[in-house]
Amino acid sequence: MKKLFLFMLILLVSCDEGLNPGTNRNIATRAFLTGNIYFVDGKEGWPPTDSVFAVRVVAFKNYPPTDIINEILSGNAFFTFNSLPLFVDSAFFSIEIKDTPVELKYIVVAQQYSDTITAQRAIGVYTETGDKTRPSSIKLFPGDSIFIKIEVDFSNLPPQPF
């Protein structure tokens, strides 16, 4: 009986407080991908409101990707959890990348065009050359914080990989 008491006491004393706000962050391996999205033609260039449910930035490890949902579920893509502001001239984003080092081969701005989360299309792609058919990749190492710019032109969309 004393052993049971002792064991419980040790267990109770030794157990930490469980979850904390930083539990899911491994500071040693995290990095940030941040940037600005510029919408060509500003607020006037956006499609009708009933076809814009959300806009997110998605960064893929693979190119070409299969589809957004499966790549995210399999851990091969990172995304902005909430939608960026809609019907604006420009928007800022920030994505925490947990498992660095990693190479992000395809970074897009995706528009959800119906109330189904899987209804997505690419409206902008990160490219250093300005050629939307040739996406640029970025390597992130622990502690990195890389800032990028992406242009979205609703009248001239990039190739659709999904």
């Binding site: 469980g18 995210i72 579920l73 959890f81």
Partner: peptide
């Protein structure tokens, strides 16, 4: 993962 932030936070 698509609906819940930090969906895998469990101990």
């Amino acid at each position: 993962k698509l609906q819940v932030r930090d969906y895998d936070a469990r101990v």
